[in-house]
Design a protein around this nucleic acid. Structure first.
Lengths: 325, 325
DNA sequence: TCAAAAGTGTTATCCTTACACCCATGT
DNA sequence: ACATGGGTGTAAGGATAACACTTTTGA
């Protein structure tokens, strides 16, 4: 783990961060990518463009005042949708791409944005797709999906039984059990990214088997694919959001101004992919003083009319830690 | 909140992410910035370059295989230090900088890295500085630091009493109390970034008062300054690390291969800036099976010899959630 | 009267925190 | 003997999860 010879030879006086060698500009193009989430009739949904298999994105341009405003601009251009809450996800460097003057580095900065589907303006090419179209194994609201025991588990076990060292096989079985709640492990909805990466590593994701790979790739696990690594970015967003709703009041970005507690509960359940205990959920929300009654009740559907609530925006000043679990 | 006219006029057919307008390349230079943390005799420390007021950094170059390897390269060049654990912090766009051909966008990608101070090779310009030099109000290991009641609290209250609306003043007082544990609030060590931002907003940070500002800036709160926004990046790293040690076993990246439980406890305390209950800490660590006995005991110092432990690297496979609280 | 949704009360369990105390070793 | 660090037992308190049950409306 020592510095290799070349590095040592090159070392001269260390330079402070501002005294960088300016002999040559090392430029890259910068891409902004958005995972825009809203609740639709089909569940927790993500805004897609193109053939419904791409996240809205575009280059960071000189005219953009900031990264976030650049992102807002592209999403509005491509989907006619205004963004509210925005949070950065991750930055990564794509493989080199061939540009006009030889190879060109591309930096991609991904964001998670939350809105309401009705915020759209006009009817451009815009598509809401349930995120469970892309990750059918992530929806546990009606129990463990059959796809796990029917497809995911056997194929992961096959992968974990491939030739190799026994310790490698044991490690693979262990990771699979932990990520998907097999054997004695319990399901943890926040591991969405680990699950995707595990399937990817096992060659069970369509995007993973491309070009000159091995001779017989196993058939991929069901789930709509996306271009490039957009599905991985979506998995990152889902994991982040599932984690965040537990300690920050971000669900309300997805709610209409006025809602019932059951509607709020259904939203949380849709995001986390699992059911919650109704009486406890209501107590938790009211006890945290996240909402206040409007005084109105629902008149519409069947059943006893429910009180209507609105989010207490004041909690954003009062406390940092407050969420739905 | 509607799309403005200019935006609507510009809108044509929406483009998928790969069908971006390629008429003009929009390039930026990319900077990598590292917050390298280790435990030294002076407590939790950060690797500084220049006059001890800059984080190691350098441009992402074409020769770099990845963002992380570029970061490793720059840190090794500037400090002779090998990095182990690395995690991305945040990406931001600096204000435009004047380059050779007019203005030039600069993207900065910041990272948190954990190592041990002994990992250094050679003696280049390298400096470990306790992070409490930069944030003296963050060390609560020996009780609430006097600087809070003597300096921070009165100046924040003065700021919260400036002319303006009553609701603004109430909001400022509320934020100050919450962030610094004033009035009835309790201290939360994870709010390091919010505290820095609050002080910055109140004009109490030296870096905040530059150029043609108001007539009489108040004297800044004690604490070593850094160039540009490096101190803010450091605050981000501290907050991230303080949060992360609670649910991921990252402390061990800072420990020698073999250590006593008290040494581990001291490290956790140094990072979080507060003391922990010894018996409970030991039970927690052992119960989580994060460590295993080496069979050896310490022979050196005063007191009863302590058992030596090593980190069980296997837990990285077994579980994702495991930490020191 | 029944289904659907809104609610209330209470208990069991676990986790965290704190307190009290004993053990082993060197000066 | 006492200071320093290692180590065990146990109980109080709070948060979480679970179960049982009542209320209000529309079909």
């Amino acid at each position: 783990m020592l510095t290799d010879a070349r590095e040592i030879m090159q070392n001269q006086a260390a330079t402070g961060s501002k005294a960088r060698p300016s002999t040559k500009a090392h430029n890259a193009s910068v891409d902004l990518i958005a995972v825009v989430v809203a609740m639709t009739e089909h569940g927790p949904s993500v805004l897609a463009v193109g053939a419904g298999d791409a996240l809205p994105s575009g280059p960071f341009e000189h005219g953009h005042r900031s990264l976030q405003s650049g992102l807002r601009g592209w999403v509005e251009h491509q989907t006619g949708h205004q963004l509210g809450y925005i949070e950065q996800l991750y930055t990564f460097a794509d493989r080199d791409r061939i540009g006009e003057e030889g190879q060109q580095r591309v930096i991609s900065i991904s964001y998670l944005a939350l809105t309401r589907a009705e915020h759209s303006v006009g009817l451009r090419r815009r598509l809401w797709r349930s995120w469970y179209d892309f990750f059918p194994w992530e929806d546990h609201r009606t129990g463990v999906p059959t796809i796990i025991s029917d497809v995911v588990e056997p194929r992961l076990l096959a992968w974990a039984s491939e030739p190799g060292s026994e310790s490698l096989r044991r490690e693979r079985r262990q990771r699979a059990s932990f990520a998907f709640g097999l054997d004695g492990s319990s399901w943890n909805e926040e591991l969405a990214l680990q699950r995707y990466e595990l399937l990817y590593e096992a060659g069970l994701i369509e995007e993973a088997t491309r070009g000159s790979e091995r001779r017989a790739p196993p058939p991929p696990v069901p789930g709509a694919k996306m271009i490039a690594d957009h599905r991985r970015i979506l998995a990152t967003a889902i994991a982040r959001l599932r984690s965040k709703i537990k300690y920050r009041p971000v669900v309300f970005e997805l709610m209409p101004p006025v809602f019932t507690l059951l509607q709020l509960q259904r939203t949380v359940e849709a995001l986390s992919g699992r059911l919650v205990h109704k009486p406890n959920f209501r107590r938790l929300i009211e006890q945290q003083e996240l909402v206040e009654e409007t005084g109105e009740t629902t008149a519409d559907t069947v059943g006893r009319p429910a009180k209507l609530f609105r989010f207490r925006h004041a909690v954003l000043d009062e406390r940092v830690a407050a969420g739905t679990k």
